[in-house]
Write a protein that binds this DNA or RNA. Structure first.
Lengths: 161, 161
DNA sequence: GGATGTAATGTTATTTCATAACACTTCCAG
DNA sequence: CTGGAAGTGTTATGAAATAACATTACATCC
């Protein structure tokens, strides 16, 4: 489950500058139109997630929360994360106890993750095959409200080296 | 994610008596043939999981570990769980921080879970659609070693009432 | 524009979950 | 019988998440 080599996630960098500002504004707009409020702490946590290159631990968010390096109180960040997840702006990676900004569509959606156990790179993908599972569950009378799909393994870069 | 009503998981009961003994022996045999050892603590934790009706929290296992009601030390149980997972005898339900005995095939396999947020019933099923996802990931050069699929929702019984 | 109710936040403390580190034992291979 | 690997016991600590309650912001309705 953990890093097994010296590789480091390649390429994927968090947002900065204008791109970051734009992403935050976009989130703000989507909140407005949905009657939701992207308040200061929520915005700040989303900002931290967007800036990051990959999954971020809750306590790293807590530590980085204050602009001056001052930490937040845990509930502040956990509440913001809960909101961001509810709105589809962020996802929780269960198998890592970590959180990522959603890099895909604009709307709330199902997500799947490919997590490289070597370099730690975490890619969000459309959950191929999820429809099959949901349908299969449905035949048993089970209605899926929320689906977690997390695949651990080795990414192309780490397999090559 | 948590129980929202008064429903209680129906029907599914843990193993007892002869069935339990048989399941444990079977696990023992599989360990033997694989050069693994089903030692006392491992066997005991598996027993507790098999006896249970559903997912069990690690600290409940710890509390119930001793035959006389005496608790175990956390590492004892966590190590046993790690072993049982490695052998495919048990699974961890990430979204619940809980563990279940594997109720399916004899061999190590991929698993998916349907978790009723109302009554807490947790069904292990064959991960329909998983092959599609693994194939899709493969086209990107990602090799899946381990797949977590957890669907939360409402079971037939809870929807009906 | 002040009363009112709801949503969100601040704050303290605690609970729950999991692992690090190291000493000791068991068990088999040579 | 001895050396090494795997397993266990034990103490302590670290990491993740939430409970509970006080306070503040915000809309809205009269």
């Amino acid at each position: 489950m953990d890093h097994r080599c010296e590789h480091v996630a390649a390429g994927r960098v968090g947002l900065t500058g204008a791109a970051l500002a734009q992403a935050l504004d976009q989130a703000g707009s989507r909140c407005d139109s949905g009657g939701q409020r992207l308040t200061a702490p929520r915005r700040r946590v989303l900002e931290l997630l967007l800036e990051a290159e990959g999954p971020v631990k809750a306590y790293d968010l807590i530590a980085a929360f204050g602009p001056d390096g001052e930490a937040a109180k845990p509930p502040t960040v956990y509440r913001a994360l809960e909101f961001l997840e509810r709105q589809g702006f962020a996802h929780r990676i269960q198998s890592l106890n970590a959180y990522v900004a959603c890099r895909l569509g604009a709307d709330i959606h199902a997500a799947a993750f490919l997590i490289c156990d070597c370099c730690g790179a975490t890619r969000e993908i459309e959950p191929a095959g999820a429809d099959v599972l949901v349908a299969s569950a449905g035949r048993d009378g089970f209605v899926v409200a929320n689906l977690t799909v997390e695949a651990h393994g080795l990414c192309a870069a780490c397999r090559a080296s």
